[in-house]
Design a protein around this nucleic acid. Structure first.
Lengths: 338, 338
DNA sequence: CTGTTAGCGCGTTCAG
DNA sequence: CTGAACGCGCTAACAG
């Protein structure tokens, strides 16, 4: 006995529309894709049938037939770190009107889960995979390489990409932070950070900072690093630790979340910014700008990264001969805490 | 001339694997799905071929054949309002290991874009569509209704769902806020809000608040509402306006973003919390908890909402006879600002 | 400008 | 336990 699932899904097909409009399925298909030249009269007829029946073309069938899926895989490590939703925003905006859909996977900074996620995404034959960072399992990299999909590695550009990289040089960002603060007269540098194991980019910024300081004959005189992920709470706690350890005139933070924690600590402890202590972050989050005293920081352009990633991915279905690097840069936001 | 796209996508098919393992395609298919009973010997052979070739089953073909897509459509209004990424987090966690993928669309609070997004998602024949809120175009609602996919409306439960609703009663939340503050002795209530047109739920909370106040013979004595979306900046500006207008002992905010703005204004203006003014928010965002004085607020459980939405959607491919409502509740977080 | 003919890669019968 | 046949809904190539 043939038991078809009870009218699940849009049971109306090209065939239904074609029959009702008195044309062939191909004609309906052509019209739905707005592709080829079709007589205005037939188009009108067909569109009436489409509306009457509430026809929505089945993209699954369409993709199979055309071997082209209009699905964009996106792999990010976290949804709770606001930075990634901001990238998604950029991705989303660039996708609007392009007839592509984003399939999103979150790895929680776990490379094994990343591998599983990438495999799951590639099963959908996506036109492109936009993935955060350069750090992947070898197996993951291989799958991406062989998939035929465009691959955009987002957030950083300090390494050779599989296909395209869109982001900023975190090393240069750290260096720029150092230069900026030295120019403003700071000499005794402290560093407040979080776990580098899960956040290699924070480490790159630190290295850049140290390079700038070294050039000026300076160095980081004290540091306090939390064990886990970055957070306002960790920033606050580590700031207290740092100040108990040593006397510094400026504290550079691994990112704005941590820096905001630093500002809150100072607010609570009666430490005046930036006279008693200067604070400098990274990212340029909204919350930093809205603090009683705007946070001094470096703006990374997350939104732009998302946009450019999509643009690069959709520019061509074929990969360039050599890795393409798109630098979305960064800017110093002077603020009032440094 | 037959010009096939240059080996795009995973050109390895069941057929390739079957040939290499010396079995039929059906056998490979069965093994890949871990479904039917297969001799351990043949399974081993096949798995070797799978690994050698790096075979990844094509889900597009699979979905077409089985009429079942394992894609979950998600429609949210915004990525920049941290609340929605938190829901996505819950969704994501619930999806891990379920072999389903989330296809995400962002509408920017625009009902026309929502309609387009839903149409785009339904074209992929998703198993379910998780959508924020109850407010949709009629056409959108119709499409969802007829799609055959499970439909979960998230965030609120003050209305009759298409299929399932997961969230909290914003009216009751507002009411609870009122009761809580009255019990703490506050009598002169101010309200600081943002645009209700784009945020009906904020309106529901306001109504609930007013109901609680009315019961106690009280009312909102002054209010200040911003024109646009909620933000820390708007909260700060409207707080200044409110306090210039009238003298209140507590200000209820449309949400935590606005309330944090209020706290910052007070910090800057030297207004002591909660002695000179009490502040109460809504949502229970992390930033509120980390303020020098923890923000008094109501926790909505966004993460839980996402999780439950997925659970409800995957529980069965068929809709229940009548709308199902899942209440994820809310809790008062006393904090230190009220 | 339109119809016809073949698949896309896989899951699902149904026989063996 | 395994294989052959058929079709999911659509697009691509080719005639006309």
């Amino acid at each position: 006995m043939r038991v078809r699932l009870p009218d699940r899904k849009s049971r109306v097909t090209v065939e239904d529309v074609a029959r009702r409009a008195g044309v062939s399925p191909s004609t309906v298909s052509r019209i739905m894709r707005g592709q080829a030249v079709v007589a205005e009269a037939t188009r009108a007829q067909v569109m009436v049938a489409v509306r009457d029946l509430g026809y929505v073309p089945n993209r699954i069938a369409g993709s199979l037939a055309s071997l082209d899926s209009r699905l964009i895989g996106v792999v990010i490590p976290s949804m709770s770190n606001i930075v990634f939703p901001e990238v998604l925003q950029g991705i989303n905006v660039a996708l609007v009107g392009s007839d592509h859909q984003a399939v999103i996977a979150v790895t929680d900074y776990d490379l094994d889960r990343e591998e599983v996620a990438v495999r799951g995404l590639l099963a959908w034959q996506p036109a492109a995979v936009l993935i955060a960072g350069f750090e992947h399992r070898d197996a993951t990299r291989r799958m991406l390489q062989h998939s035929g999909a465009r691959v955009v590695e987002m957030m950083e550009i300090d390494q050779e990409p599989i296909d395209v990289a869109v982001g900023l040089s975190h090393r240069r960002a750290g260096y720029a932070t150092g230069r900026h603060l030295i120019e403003r007269g700071y000499r005794r540098f402290g560093y407040v950070g979080h776990d580098w194991a899960a956040d290699r980019r924070a480490r790159l910024r630190y290295d850049g900072l140290c390079a700038a300081l070294a050039e000026a004959g300076l160095g980081v005189v004290a540091e306090a690093r939390a064990g886990g992920a970055s957070s306002v709470a960790a920033g606050r706690a580590q700031t207290a630790r740092l100040l108990a350890t040593a006397s510094v005139d400026v504290a550079v933070y691994s990112n704005d979340d941590m820096a905001v924690g630093g500002v809150f600590h100072c607010l609570t402890a009666g430490i005046r910014l930036p006279v008693d202590l200067a604070i400098f972050g990274f990212n340029g989050l909204e919350i930093g700008r809205e603090l009683p005293q705007p946070l001094s920081t470096l703006r990374s352009n997350r939104y732009l990264i998302g946009q450019q990633a999509v643009a690069a991915a959709l520019a061509s279905p074929l990969r360039p001969d050599r890795g393409l690097v798109i630098d979305t840069g960064f800017e110093v936001f002077a603020g009032a805490t440094a």
